[in-house]
Computed example of a mutant assay.
Amino acid sequence: MAERYSSFETGGRRWLWQRITAAFLVVVLAFHFFLLHFVNHADEVTFLASSARMTDLTYYSLMVLFLVTATFHGVNGVYNALENQGLTGTKKQVVKYTLIAASLVLVVQGIRTANAWAGLPTF
């Protein structure tokens, strides 16, 4: 019989957060597709309309949370896939900190972009 193999520790938090973020992303993606593909068709989506949506605190907060959640979910998935392939030692640490740095850059730039669209000061 095949054994179960996963880099996720049994009862670990990374496994749980991977599932929680997946569920959240499914809901937010459904909202995105509904809003931007059924309510507003692609040819109706403009920069001005997107900027107007971003001025709404609820929408802005949801998009920032979507950014952070998607970044974590993607990076956590890549890191665990690499662990499953046998990544260990120094290479594992280098990959880990490279992914963390890339995530931080992505989130900071994403928030700066969201702030610009919402008319908020960028940092």
Score class of each variant (00 low, 15 high):
2 A>H: 14
5 Y>P: 02
7 S>W: 05
9 E>M: 04
11 G>F: 08
12 G>W: 07
13 R>S: 11
14 R>I: 04
15 W>A: 11
15 W>L: 11
15 W>D: 09
17 W>L: 09
17 W>D: 02
18 Q>P: 03
19 R>A: 12
20 I>W: 11
20 I>K: 08
21 T>Y: 07
21 T>K: 08
21 T>A: 08
23 A>S: 14
26 V>N: 08
26 V>C: 12
27 V>T: 13
28 V>Y: 09
29 L>F: 12
29 L>K: 07
31 F>Y: 14
32 H>A: 11
32 H>N: 14
33 F>T: 08
35 L>S: 09
36 L>T: 10
37 H>T: 09
37 H>P: 04
38 F>N: 06
39 V>C: 03
43 D>A: 03
43 D>G: 03
44 E>M: 05
46 T>M: 04
47 F>A: 06
48 L>H: 13
48 L>K: 14
48 L>N: 12
48 L>R: 14
48 L>I: 11
50 S>Y: 09
50 S>R: 09
52 A>T: 03
52 A>L: 03
54 M>S: 01
55 T>W: 01
57 L>R: 07
58 T>K: 01
58 T>I: 02
58 T>D: 01
60 Y>G: 00
60 Y>H: 01
61 S>D: 00
61 S>I: 00
62 L>S: 02
62 L>A: 04
65 L>Y: 01
66 F>W: 09
69 T>Y: 00
74 G>M: 03
75 V>P: 01
76 N>V: 02
77 G>Y: 01
78 V>W: 05
78 V>K: 02
78 V>Q: 03
79 Y>C: 02
80 N>L: 05
81 A>F: 11
84 N>G: 10
84 N>M: 05
88 T>E: 15
88 T>D: 15
90 T>S: 13
90 T>V: 14
91 K>S: 12
91 K>I: 07
93 Q>A: 11
93 Q>T: 10
96 K>F: 14
96 K>Q: 15
97 Y>R: 12
98 T>S: 15
98 T>W: 14
100 I>L: 13
101 A>L: 13
101 A>Q: 07
102 A>R: 07
104 L>I: 11
105 V>K: 04
106 L>K: 09
106 L>V: 12
107 V>E: 00
108 V>I: 13
109 Q>L: 12
110 G>H: 02
110 G>L: 02
113 T>S: 12
113 T>G: 06
116 A>Y: 12
116 A>C: 06
118 A>V: 03
120 L>K: 11
120 L>P: 03
120 L>G: 03
121 P>A: 14
122 T>V: 15
123 F>V: 15
